[in-house]
Structures are given as structure tokens and as C-alpha cells.
Design a protein around this nucleic acid. Structure first.
Length: 115
RNA sequence: CGGGUCGGCAAGACGGUCGCGUCGGCAUCACACCUCGUGGGUUGCCGCCGAGGAACGUCCGGGCUCCGUAGAGCAGGGCGGUGGGUAACACCCACCCGGGGCAACCCGCGAGACAGUGCCACAGAAAACAGACCGCCUUCGCGUGAGCGAAGGUAAGGGUGAAACGGUGGUGUAAGAGACCACCAGCGGCCGGGGCGACCCGGCCGGCUAGGCAAACCUCGCCCGGAGCAAGGUCAGACAGGAAACCAUGAGGCUGCUCGCCUCAUUUCCGGGUAGACCGCUAGAGGAUCGUGGUAACACGCUCCCGAGAUAGAUGGCCGUCCAGGGCACGCAGCGUUCUCGAACACCGCGUGCCCGAACAGAACCCGGCGUAUCAGCCGGCCCGUUCC
RNA sequence: GCCCCCAUAGCUCAGGGGAUAGAGCGUCUGCCUCCGGAGCAGAAGGCCGAAGGUUCGAAUCCUUCUGGGGGCA
């Protein structure tokens, strides 16, 4: 789960991240990362369309993605907006699969701060 | 014991770890008012609470809010046995009628087809108002004759169809026919009895007989003003105006039309800005025990109980143990069937081991219903069959 | 939150109580041509989205679902 400060909360931010951000494809997800100023903390947003399933299924997928994001949070450099779009296949994906996909996407963009 | 039918209950438990949201408390950091406190906010810790029986579909009915009071008529829409319940309903209860079932019980958008209009394909002579294709019968004419033609009487028989103008039997007749008779079905009227009523029971009389479809238009009776919490309100913030028409209407409230009422007065078109916070926002036609009234739905009274309120949207992610139960294998015992007579097969019970292991589904203003989805279960009423006492 | 529309042949659509449901494109076969296209002739392909009801009779009327598409604030 994520605190309010770590969530993208306006439609404008979503639009900017998806249009201007770097895109990383994976079998179950598409991740968009956009660099903003260093002062703001890392913010996550999730897009789960109706094509994924009914409300219960969509909620489960979104909560899994939130849990993955929460665990990744301490490793990330501040000043990034990240939007994760869940594809219909993500219903069958296990938690470890999703975790791997997001971690790889963040690595590729270089948003992680290596200690 | 087996089968059926109706109703109700419940919607896994415990733990580890990492987290989220509202509210409350303490602390903390800046800030505003302002003068030693108050207000909202940041961060941290602690505590309480945190999805459903359908939260779903949005098919109905309400509350609530705004449209000045919620106005009139038409149009439009809904409902349709009777009586009751309810805030209201298309819901519920009881009863009536019709249909199904041995029964418990189930099913029915159940007013009107002598107010009118329309439709009834194909087949058939004829499809709604009477008529007559093949027949049957009488008379006359023609013909040696089989027969043919004309006039008339019939509707018993034939075949078609979902449906053919009462049915069966008899009298009668040239042949026939409710023409007449008996019984039956059905229609109308009157009388008596029962019921609040739909309706039921019985008797008498009449004419002998009336098609179906209103989930076709329609008629009758009853009901319905419009929009919806993104309703509506308070505060803060942002921006840029331009063009055209013009003094008697124009626009809006108000989805269609007419009238009426009210409000605003410049109006129309193009362009520009905003998408923040707070209130509404959760205790209500609420639930439970008992009592009273009622066949029941339900109503009344007393006492007790209730603690989700998010807003890119919390109520969870990962893991473990157990449990209801299910599957497979092996062993033991019982019983049944088959036969080559000690084996094969099937069923149930017990034990051991392994494996699987919860369905449908996520609040967004709130209720009452309906409809739909739902793994594995539990409890009870009633009916039928079989056996035993 | 409220509301509307659609579902018929592989595709796009007609048909609004009486048909074993029709048109165009496409597919297949044959003719034509040296070959292909075009053209001509012919054929196949549908329990009309699902279930229930009204009716003698339903793709059509009614109800409830299923799956799509769209609109408003």
C-alpha cells in the first residue's frame, strides 16, 4: 500500500506521464516513467481498464501492484512519476512475476539509486 | 428408509510479516489570527473501527435537495380478479377463478371482444354473416338407356383447418333440420341462501347457441410535474474580450404542445477562465427479545442494540497452520450378483497414507422490493411410497 | 449516477405476426482467356444473441438475462 504522498492524484499528471514519459513493455504491464523535479517524492499511479475483468479482479490486480510499488519505494531516487498500466494477462500473473516486471522496468530507466 | 415439495440459517477460523483510510489521544514542525490561547495543516507513535446477501443489474417504488407554491388541460407512460398490508410500489399476505400434479404444492401482464376499427396466412365451398363445393331429395324437360339440364328444398354425411355456427340418442321427413323430445354443456334473466368482496350453492323461466386475437389500435377504472448528491449550498481562486441584432418583445423555470404563473431584463453568436476545500455524509419507513391485536402480510407497546464513509477512490499484499468436505490407493469386516466353487465384479462402513481444498462477488446519498449469480453445507414443516411396532 | 441504441450468411445491412428469412460484397464450381483480372451462369453458407411467455402461428409482440456501442452532467 502507498501513502497519499506517493500517489499520482490528478488527471493532468497521468496524462503527462503517459505522453512524455519513457515507456517499458512487459508481458503483463506497461510502465511509464517521467522525471520531474528532485524535490517531490516518487509517485505511483495505476491504470486498470475494464478489459482486465470485473471490479473484484481489477481491485486485486491494483492492490498487488501497489504492494510491489511499496516494496520498491526505498530503492528509488526521488523526483519520478511512474504509471503502471495493467494488461488483461495480469489477472493470471503471480505476485513474483509482477514484482520482476516492475523492478526490471525501473532498472531500465535508471530511476533506482544504487547504493 | 427412499422420493418429492416449501421455508429458514450461514457466507470459514487462527497466526506471522509488510502496509492503507476515517476518527480520537499524545508529541512534533512551520503558519495564520492575534496576544499567552484558538484554528486548520505536516510528520511520528498509540488506540478504536473499517464491504454484501446479493454491495451486482438498474427493472420498479419512495425519502432527501433544487426548480417561487407544485398549477390546469391535452399528449405520453404505467398498472389491471377481490379484500387487506405499506411511506409507496409493478412488492407482500389471504382468498376467488382457470390450468397442472395421486398429494404436499406449483403456475397465471387474470378488466372489457353485444362502443367502434382492424386481423385471422396456407388449406378449404365458406373464416364471422351468413351462405352452399361435392353430396342428398322433389318436380319438370330432353334422351331407348346409362344419364344430362333447369327450378326448388336441405345442411345429416365428405374433406380442409388452430378454429366450421351446440353434443349424444330418438321422434319426424321426399331428404333433412332444435322442427319437436330427453339428458348434457353453455348463455341471459329472476328469486332464495352464504360471503365485506371477487365469487359460490340451490330453484324457476327464456331463446335453442353466442368464434378467436386487446403482450393489435382502442374503451373503462386507478396512478404519475421535472431533474437528480456530479442534487444543492458556503468559501477560496482564475480570466479577455469581440461581433451582430434591437424597443417590444426575448430568454429561462419546464423532456412534447396549449394555457396560466413567476423570474431576469438587453438578447444571440464566437472566444476566454475554473475542475480546489468544506457542508450535504451517514441513527434510519433500522434491527432483536417479549407482550397485545390480526388466519397472515403487518401494526402497536416495553426494553435492549447499533461505531465503513473513500474521492485516481481505503477496508489489503505475501506466507503458514487448521477445518467442512472431496478424490485416489491399500487393508479389514459385511452383504449382493455371476459362475468353471473359490475367484471376479459392485455397494456401504471402519482404519491408514497421499493429493486437492472454498462459490458468486467490492460500498460511493440513503432505504423498500423485484430480477440475476452462487462451491460445499446445516436445520425445520408438509406430502407420497415401502417396512416394522 | 442517469439514459439511449444495436445483435439476422464470413463482412455490411433489409425484413416490424403467416417465406424451409432476402440483397450487395466475399467464398466455391463451370464458361470465356495463352494466363490472370473483368464479365456470364450456377451453388454452398442461418436452429435470426440466450431463456421463458402471449398467440393456431414469433426473426417480428412482452419479460428477464448475455455481449457490444454511444450520450449527458
Amino acid at each position: 500500500m502507498l501513502a497519499k504522498a506517493n500517489r499520482i492524484r490528478t488527471g493532468a499528471d497521468y496524462r503527462l506521464t503517459i505522453r512524455r514519459g519513457v515507456r517499458v513493455h512487459a508481458p503483463n504491464t506497461i510502465t511509464y516513467v517521467r522525471r520531474v523535479s528532485d524535490a517531490t517524492p516518487v509517485r505511483f499511479g495505476f491504470v486498470v481498464s475494464k478489459a482486465v475483468g470485473i471490479a473484484v479482479v481489477r481491485n486485486t490486480v491494483r492492490r498487488r501492484l501497489k504492494a510491489v510499488s511499496r516494496e520498491l519505494l526505498p530503492e528509488l531516487a526521488p523526483g519520478h512519476d511512474i504509471v503502471v498500466r495493467a494488461l488483461p494477462a495480469s489477472v493470471q500473473a503471480s505476485w513474483t512475476t509482477l514484482q520482476g516486471e516492475i523492478r526490471r522496468a525501473v532498472d531500465e530507466v535508471g530511476a533506482r539509486c544504487m547504493p
